[in-house]
Amino acid sequence: MAIETATPVIELRHVDKHYGPLHVLRDINLSVAKGEVLVVIGPSGSGKSTMCRTINRLETIDSGEILIEGTPLPQEGKELAALRAKVGMVFQSFNLFAHKTILQNVTMGPIEVLHTPREQAEAEAMELLRRVGVDSQAAKVPAQLSGGQQQRVAIARSLAMHPTAMLFDEPTSALDPEMINEVLAVMVELAQEGMTMVVVTHEMNFARRVANRVVFMADGQIVEQNSPDEFFDHPQSQRAKDFLESIKGH
């Protein structure tokens, strides 16, 4: 297990959520310690994305509590925006700003939210783009980049905010196989540098290599959680066994 500190970076307490009659999150309790890498895994429709998105309130919850570094997530307005700025998010579909250049994508947050002077924001952005290996593309627009490059830019865009934690919702699912590794490599490096991460992914090698804990979800519930080796080699529940069997196929 990761180093436990007094206050978890992310904490969910008895979180429930419905979409109409559909009970998508059922009494979710989860806490992520500083520097911990948590991998969330589970069948399609089990609520992984929804849980991930509630953590920075892209989805509201019906009941329960979500705390970021001990502070309850505000409901709206400037306070909510300020807390969101501390939690980076990487989407399956990249969601780079289509009308902005790669460099502008990365400087947007620092300039508009942190009020960093433009020169400084650009220097930092170039440094981040170098780190993820796309600095040569800085003047292009997103549509001109490959999926793998766009996702690395999206990671750089999040990092530019100096987040205390990062959420990844299936960051490699929309990528061609040959581009998956270049994105995973960036994420492995981040994990090794001690970033607190919640990663929804089915990449088992990634999970075994860097995850401190694997959380298995089904039907909106956390069914079991364990260290990656324990979980993948000795799943406890029947649901997890069935699920692991089904993804071994490919």
Binding site: N56, L58, A81, A82, L83, R84, A85, K86, V87, G88, M89, F91, N95, L96, F97, M108, G109, E112, V113, A154, R157, S158, M161
Partner: peptide, 8 residues
């Protein structure tokens, strides 16, 4: 959503 996640 991406902009919200940045805290805008």
């Amino acid at each position: 959503e991406a902009a919200m996640a940045l805290g805008m």
